[in-house]
Design a protein around this nucleic acid. Structure first.
Lengths: 184, 184
DNA sequence: CGCTCCATGTAACTGGTTACATGATTCC
DNA sequence: GGAATCATGTAACCAGTTACATGGAGCG
């Protein structure tokens, strides 16, 4: 049982999903390709942490829709009780930022301008998602889903994504102010 | 040539370091173990991107101090010209946050309290480092190292680390407000 | 006609971690 | 006496990516 396996279980603890759905939903929080997910799911099935049902579709390929078992929920609970290991961030831009001065400012600027675009797209998506789940959870304006609500987890995560995104935009914008413009 | 190799080159572009030093310095920005770094360094040496000098020490083991070559600087420059790939963050706490409601609030709180401690320690370290490099760079108060300054890269990175750290502290603190206290 | 989306799977490879191995010094 | 730091290296393993494989539906 690795972290990815628990990631799959935690998504399945909220809804029934296919391997393909799991891959898409997990992307923002624990990136993984389908080639890693499918074998893991069949392991989880062997261990009786999940079950699946073959769902035939007409205009799309058939799919396996997975459901978490009581045993699966139990191992999630156990996993939640041990402290989370340290977060790991790997960002090429940070290494590139360290040796900016080896190339001319125009090239440096490009790096940060395109990263800014990346974050702006993310920001928009996160904002859409957060209003969407707040609507679904049915809370009043300014309120937060309760501890028992199945939407609390998603709301907490999206809030983190939003906050980090904004901070990164701030950082990139600041860096662009520090890099001299081309016409200077 | 993978990202880690460029990470080593970028550190060596600023100073002469041993494999051990490189490992320690790289940790905050691209975590890697010595077992990954030593073989990479000997590859870089074969490709003539770096050279090394055996330095004998009396009270510590001897070491290999590496120096970047012109060829190494050139490949760094080339690498800087291609856009940085997307950043990857993997954080178990995010997955755990998603299924908080399966355990009782006391257990949830523990997760975020210990993560807060983690970030507070990081914050302190980053603050020390940033004042240290600003002092070394010799800029006046409120000023920023120039584009040509060898300290600009480190300053930009530390600023990002600081900003992210503060945002994460803010997030954890907010989450702890959302999780009901034990005596409620 | 090629591209993307949906959907599943395996094989080969690269990246990263853990463990094995050695050995002196310093600190508790 | 045991642990931590410095310093280098290899071997075995696990995690993650890329590529191979198949195939229908819908879009431009």
């Amino acid at each position: 049982m690795n972290t990815l396996a628990y990631g799959l279980l935690s998504l399945l603890s909220h809804s029934h999903l296919s391997g393909y759905d799991l891959m898409l939903k997990l992307q923002p929080f624990w990136p993984a390709k389908h080639s890693q997910i499918y074998p893991l799911l069949s392991n989880l099935e062997k261990e009786e942490q999940v079950t699946f049902e073959l769902v035939a579709q007409t205009d799309k390929p058939d799919k396996k829709v997975y459901t978490i078992t009581e045993k699966g929920i139990d191992s999630l609970r156990e996993w939640l009780s041990v402290p989370a290991s340290d977060p790991v961030l790997r960002d090429e831009l940070m290494i590139k930022a360290y040796c900016l001065s080896f190339v001319d400012p125009a090239i440096s600027r490009k790096l940060f301008v395109s990263r800014l675009e990346y974050y702006h797209i993310k920001l928009q998506r996160y904002e859409e998602k957060i209003t969407h789940i707040l609507k679904k959870s049915g809370v009043n304006e300014g309120e937060i889903p309760s501890y028992q609500s199945p939407y609390l987890g998603a709301y907490i995560l999206l809030n983190k994504a939003l906050m980090s995104c904004k901070t990164n935009i701030e950082w990139c914008t600041w860096v662009l102010k520090v890099i001299p413009a081309d016409n200077e």
